[in-house]
Write a protein that binds this DNA or RNA. Structure first.
Length: 111
DNA sequence: CGATTGACCGAAG
DNA sequence: CCTTCGGCCAATC
């Protein structure tokens, strides 16, 4: 199993309930600032894992870019709204307030 | 084995 | 403000 994928899952699991983060933020935290696509790819492979709240990960604009990959297109929005996050037109309102940056909240992996 | 494709991001024009 | 482009790396064709 790829270590990078596993790292992604570990970070996503640490996202506090009611907060969201972006693919790029996770990628940067893992030391791959320009491998945000790999984060998305990793989440695509997280279909089997129920312990990975992928709905809390959106793109840098707060847009639900991955909603199509959920069981239902509206499931992602419903999950976010159930956590107190408002979603309008596939976009998180006040995204900036709900944003959770692992680079600030978590201790750095490498010194 | 080369080409294409992603749940992306940032910089440049 | 909007569009274009390069980069990143794995999986699929």
């Amino acid at each position: 199993m790829s270590l990078f994928f596993d790292q992604v899952y570990a970070v996503v699991q640490k996202i506090p309930l009611g907060n969201v983060t972006s693919y790029g933020a996770i990628a940067r935290y893992l030391g791959h600032p320009r491998s945000a696509r790999m984060v998305g790819y990793a989440l695509n492979a997280s279909h089997l894992r129920t312990d990975v709240p992928a709905h809390r990960v959106v793109n840098r604009n707060g847009l639900l870019s991955g909603k199509h990959h959920f069981h239902g297109s509206k499931l992602m929005q419903q999950l976010l709204e159930s956590e107190g996050i408002s979603v309008k037109n596939d976009q998180i309102t006040n995204f900036k307030e709900f944003f959770w940056d692992p680079n600030l909240a978590l201790p750095p992996l490498k010194i």
